[in-house]
Design a protein around this nucleic acid. Structure first.
Lengths: 152, 152
DNA sequence: GCGATTTCACCAATGATTGTTGATTGACAA
DNA sequence: TTGTCAATCAACAATCATTGGTGAAATCGC
């Protein structure tokens, strides 16, 4: 993901204004590898700006996604998660227990639809989701890690 | 997926009663390869039983999933889809345009998390989603196929 | 400085799914 | 055949994540 400064430029260049709350969100996303939901971003942003509204967070996340600076991803855990890592192609590890998501930067060269098996589909991309237990849920295999359980 | 008769036995064996509406749903799912949503199952069932309620459909689909006779799957299209093919492991082709889903029965032997890349996760399974355009949306590349557009 | 954009709080609506009610039906074991 | 309990129905409300509206206040950037 780009730095807050670069994002500021991009926003300006696209005709958007750069407000304090937007910059706050830029900062929150910077280096975040937890694939936060909009709620989680809002919670983190609120720590820096108590009055920032959930609406604004949703709006800015969509702006960022529209500009291709972050990716919105749905791994079947109910809410949309946002992935600041949009530079190197990767897959995902998803915890069955707490729903946490981590990047898996691995290339699978053999991952393609065999000839004749595509059922007429014009295939564009492949995403792999590995499901299992994250380190915390694996250890305390009945009680998920508190922070993770809090819908992180 | 098992035959309606087998499902009838399984339901009885698990202490569930086998009603006309449940059998109707068994029949609807039988051989259905479209990965129908609950709504779609309800629509199809309604053609055989006009009074069957959506509630009952949801309930029965969950019963079937609980017994492992069908799989509930979420490919990021908003609604949960139900897959009667639970016997051979497979992946999915998803249409970006109309959201239709098809099975892809292919084994990817190299699909594993490399040593040391698992970030501490205890990985259990891998699902691949290939995204692209289904035959209908590919041809009429602006207007999705009517039946498919109707939330099939 | 000025105008257009953005934000705010508040509240309502969406769409998929689940829960509640109370009355009726019907499956199935005895 | 019958009694019991599960299942169903209609109708309605509630959930949760997300989006939409309002009007007023703030503020970005030319």
């Amino acid at each position: 993901m780009r730095t807050p400064e670069e994002l500021t430029e991009r926003f300006r260049a696209s005709g958007r204004k750069v407000t304090a709350q937007r910059q706050c969100i830029f900062r929150v996303l910077q280096g975040d590898e937890t694939h936060p939901s909009a709620e989680a971003v809002h919670a983190a942003a609120s720590r820096q700006m108590e009055t920032i509204s959930l609406k604004t967070v949703y709006q800015t996340l969509h702006d960022l996604a529209e500009l291709g600076e972050i990716a919105a991803l749905d791994v079947g855990t109910g809410r949309t998660r946002f992935d600041p890592n949009v530079d190197d192609p990767h897959h995902h590890l998803v915890c069955r227990s707490c729903g946490s998501v981590r990047d898996l930067v691995v290339d699978f060269p053999d991952l393609a639809v065999p000839d004749g098996a595509d059922l007429g589909f014009l295939v564009g991309s492949a995403e792999v989701v590995f499901r299992g237990l994250c380190p915390f849920c694996r250890d305390s295999s009945r009680a998920p890690e508190p922070a993770a359980a809090a819908r992180t």
